[in-house]
Structures are given as C-alpha cells and as structure tokens.
C-alpha cells in the first residue's frame, strides 16, 4: 500500500511536526498525505508494528501482511516517518491493564508541547460482549481479541502457547458479519473439530452476505439461523453449553428490516468448549478523563470541517470519529483530517 500515493519523492520540508496516535488505516493514510506536503510525522502506537487492524485483526488471507509492511517501509525509508511502537499515550490516567506490548508511556500533554498538531486515530478495539447468564464463564471470548492473538502469533510477537487451544474443540460463534466469518475460518485452520455459527436472522440478512456464509457451510460449519443466545451453561467455571432461543422473523418494518421474534418455549442447547462473540465493536476513546475533547452520545470524538476536535490543534480521524467502519472509510477519513491539519498549519499556501 502506497500510503504516500500523492507523491513519489520527499518534498521540501515545511518545518512542521505532527504526532499521530494510532498506526491503523486512518493514521497511516493521514501520514502519507502529510509527508507529501513536507511535514515531519511521528506515529505512536501501543503495538510493536504499524498497520493497526489491517495487520493485527484482519486475517492474512484477506490482507497480505507484506502489503502493509511494504507500505510503511516506504514511509520510513523515503519520507523519514518515525514510528514509536510499544508506546502508549496516556492522558494523566493510570495505564490500562493488558497493554502487554507497551514499553513506554508518554503523557498527552508532552505530545502537545513537542508537536505542532496531534491527530488521534486510535480506532475501535473493544468487542461488544453480552450481558447474559454465564457471560463471564471461562471460554466466552471476544472475536477480535482471538483474531488479534492469532495474528500476533503469526507475526511472531507471541508464542502459539498463548493462543486459546482450538484443536479438536467445539466452537460456537455468535454473529454473521465479516469478523464472525474470519473467526470461523481461523478456527478451521487451527483444527477446531466442530464449528457452529448462530445468527438471529437468516442467511439472507447475514451482514457478511449469503456467499460467505454458504462458503462456510460447504466447508462444514454448522449454520444455526434464527437463534439467539439466552444463557451460557457452565461447569467448574468453564463453558459447557449454550442455550439458544429459536426465533421467527417479523414482517418488514417501514425500513424493510425484519426483526427476530422469539418463539415461545423453543430452545436448543449445544455442547461446546468455546463461545466466540462477533457482534460488533465498541468505541474506545483513548482518554478516561476530561481533556477538553468533546464526544457525542455514542462516544465518538466530535470534529469540525477541518477534522479538528473541540481542542485547538488536536485532530481526530477514523473509527474514533465515524464509528466502526470499513478500512476504506477510515483511510478516507484520515486523508480528510490530514488535509484539515495541513490547511490549519499552512493556511492559504497549502
């Protein structure tokens, strides 16, 4: 990926320094735009390598690892972009747990002092988890963190011993979007013996599309449509089974959408080792305390026409602004934010 697709060579330096928090699609495309306008860019990310979800979430068979790596190598070697990996930007708050890769913590205020502009592009990393009976049992997993760990192992950052053992295991995947499909394919390749996929509507409504679900069915995935988890049954703290409520679809509402309606007293129980939730991502604003960056009711960062937040000189882009979305949307948002930063820094001469 040529993130710096707008130019070929490094232009005259502008003597402006920009810090970008988050090296995913939005952060990297913004970087590409900014270096083509002569700015010095430093990217900070808590992971050891740039790429964000393109590298650490989306499986290799969809986006080749080499493609993302080549893209960043050009930014680094031709345009002098500095990547500060394993580095977390903290907002006065205590470090979170589980930042296992992080070696260094940098205060947000220090970043503001050291740079002419700051772009927040930290994305959406938290999986939505159910609030049902048994939801806290061992073996109930968020899809993204499983995909993340698998990718970390494939990239050589952690040992395969740290991955939930899937060989000869039964897995129930909840959801029918792209993440659910990716998890199913990874479970297959890691030797799961039985894979169920449960969705509350039918194959025709599946967000990943009929084609992908059918592909999985042909590969042996057991497709349970019109079923909703009601409770997870445990044994000694581990998952033992899941109970699913059978549903039927309502008549289409005025938007043409059909909703699942539970059918009274119709339940199915499936014995399983793991339950993997792939029902979407939650927004994760990187700050816990008020740093004068305003959020909307959904937790998204509010930005103006230049992609500037409510705080002067602090910009935001990607999923953190638009909500969980496709790679392309994040890339475009990063470009528009970079355009805004350039205009804000350089004015009419930009």
């Amino acid at each position: 990926m040529r993130f710096a697709f707008l130019c070929r060579d490094k232009p005259e330096p502008s003597n402006r320094k920009i810090a970008i928090i988050g090296a995913g699609p939005a952060g990297l495309s913004a970087t590409g735009y900014l270096v083509c306008h002569g700015h010095e860019v430093h990217i900070f990310d808590k992971l050891p390598e740039p790429g964000g979800l393109m590298l650490f979430g989306i499986p290799e068979f969809r986006i080749p690892i080499s493609r993302v790596r080549e893209g960043f190598a050009e930014l680094r070697d031709i345009f002098g972009v500095k990547f500060h990996g394993r580095t977390k930007i903290v907002f006065g708050n205590k470090p979170d747990e589980g930042d296992s890769f992080v070696d260094e913590f940098i205060e947000f205020d220090k970043l503001i002092k050291d740079f002419d502009a700051v772009l927040i592009a930290t994305g959406t990393w938290k999986s939505i988890m159910p609030k049902i009976e048994g939801g806290d049992l061992k073996g109930v997993l968020p899809a993204l963190s499983l995909l993340f760990k698998i990718k970390c192992a494939r990239l050589g950052y952690i040992s395969w011993d740290n991955i939930t053992p899937l060989k000869e295991k039964t897995v129930v995947i909840i959801g029918a979007g792209h993440t659910a499909v990716d998890v199913a394919i990874e479970c297959m390749s890691l030797g799961a013996s039985k894979i169920y996929m449960c969705y509350r509507r039918t194959i025709l409504e599946a967000p990943a599309g009929y084609h992908e679900i059918n592909f999985l069915k042909n590969r042996g995935v057991i497709w349970y449509e019109l079923s909703m988890p009601t409770r997870i049954i445990g044994e000694n703290g581990n998952v033992k089974a899941i109970e699913l409520q059978q549903c039927k679809l309502s008549k289409p509402d005025k938007n043409g959408r059909r909703y699942p309606i539970p059918i009274e007293n119709q339940f199915v129980t499936i014995d399983t080792n793991y339950i993997i939730y792939a029902i979407g991502q939650k927004l994760t604003p990187p700050f816990q305390q008020d740093i004068d960056v305003k959020l909307d009711d959904w937790g998204r960062i509010i930005v103006d026409d230049l992609h500037m937040t409510s705080r002067e000189g602090i910009f935001a882009a990607g999923d953190i602004v638009i909500g969980p979305s496709k790679v392309g949307r994040a890339i475009q948002d990063g470009l528009y934010a970079a355009e805004g930063i350039n205009y804000w820094l350089m004015g009419e001469q930009s």
Binding site: P25, K326, V327, R329
Partner: peptide, 13 residues
C-alpha cells in the same frame, strides 16, 4: 477483493 472500499474512498478523495 475483500470489499474494503479503499479504492472507492481514495478515488472519491
């Protein structure tokens, strides 16, 4: 193609 819409987004930009 995985339908990520990067091509469309870039072209639109």
């Amino acid at each position: 193609c995985i339908g990520c819409e990067t091509c469309q987004s870039i072209c639109e930009f």
